[in-house]
């Protein structure tokens, strides 16, 4: 080891030691600041925003919750009726989670644990479907629902979301199912369980973390979705989801930006709460298998 390389090592170590903290500070700013800004603006009136756009806090005099009042109050009382939209979003998202899990569990179980004719082809197909772009789906589903008279229906929207979430759910569940030891099921079979009973009484309870992670991920996708809500529900304000309602709100000129920010907070909070309640579960469910690749 020459002294020169020693200094190079020392130099790099010192440099990266500093750079690391710069990066950490940068990441903290870019991820937290936008959300702070969102909350900040949501408790101001539009006048105080226009007066001092660069301000980073809200004084007690400026502080107001009238923005939230405006967003949540029903339209009949001059508000934006977001409570109804929250309910719509919740219905669609929960419905999507239930339908997706019901549809995905048997298939994920089969391709992960059972040897059957065509197993590999079908599991490759499930993965390939995951790669299909949503734009390809948008046109036929739009037409199909127009034909069936299902456009402007929350149930129809939930079905569309199932189409988007089933493939990734199969993938996530499969990754977890393969980690459950086969012997547990054999023991269940010896005890006289049928396959279906084994799945219900043994495998599913063991896979609960993965079921929850997958359900949560599906919920997030459905709650946050915008394109299909716009395509299917735009004509019927009663049925709007929060995302769509917020986007439509921004087109109205008479709605102030701070009210818009209050709407954004209302839209974001449920997802963020759920996410922090189950962060570990979700990140592990998503990345399981990544460390083995």
């Amino acid at each position: 080891m020459s002294p020169l390389s020693m200094t190079r090592t020392q130099f790099e170590e010192r440099l990266f030691g500093v750079l690391r903290w710069v990066v950490i500070a940068f990441l903290a700013v870019i991820t937290i600041a936008p959300f702070y800004y969102m909350v900040l603006l949501s408790v101001k009136s539009i006048d105080s925003l226009l007066l001092d756009p660069g301000s980073l806090w809200v004084s007690a005099k400026e502080f107001t919750l009238s923005t939230y009042e405006n967003v949540l109050k029903p339209q009949s009382e001059g508000g934006q009726g977001f409570l109804q939209l929250l309910l719509n979003s919740a219905l669609v998202s929960l419905g999507t989670v239930a339908l997706t899990l019901i549809a995905a569990v048997p298939g994920a179980y089969a391709i992960s644990r059972l040897k059957f004719f065509g197993n590999r082809q079908i599991s490759a197909m499930f993965l390939a479907v995951y790669m299909f772009p949503a734009t390809l789906l948008a046109v036929p589903l739009f037409v199909m629902f127009a034909k069936l008279g299902l456009s402007s229906s929350l149930a129809g929207l939930a079905i569309v979301y199932v189409a988007q979430t089933v493939p990734v759910s199969i993938y996530m569940l499969k990754n977890y199912f393969v980690t459950i030891p086969y012997s547990i099921e054999e023991a269940a079979a010896l005890d006289g369980c049928s396959r279906l009973q084994a799945l219900r009484k043994v495998i599913l309870p063991l896979a609960l973390p993965s079921l929850m992670a997958t359900g949560l991920y599906v919920f997030m996708i459905a709650w946050n979705e915008f394109l299909f809500a716009l395509l299917f529900l735009a004509a019927d304000p009663e049925k709007w989801t929060v995302s769509l309602g917020l986007a439509q709100l921004s087109n109205g000129i008479e709605v102030s930006k701070t009210v818009l920010m209050a709407g954004s907070v209302v839209l974001t909070i449920p997802v963020i709460l759920l996410f922090f309640a189950a962060e570990r579960l979700l990140t592990e469910g998503l990345t399981s298998g990544a460390d083995k690749s």
């Binding site: 048997p106 089969a110 004719f117």
Partner: peptide
């Protein structure tokens, strides 16, 4: 084999109806 097909069929049908046929 039969169990596998039985379990995979519902999922397959859903994927077929809501994804593959529309595409």
């Amino acid at each position: 084999n039969r169990a596998g097909l039985a379990f995979v069929t519902p999922t397959f049908v859903v994927v077929l109806v809501v994804v593959i046929l529309p595409i």
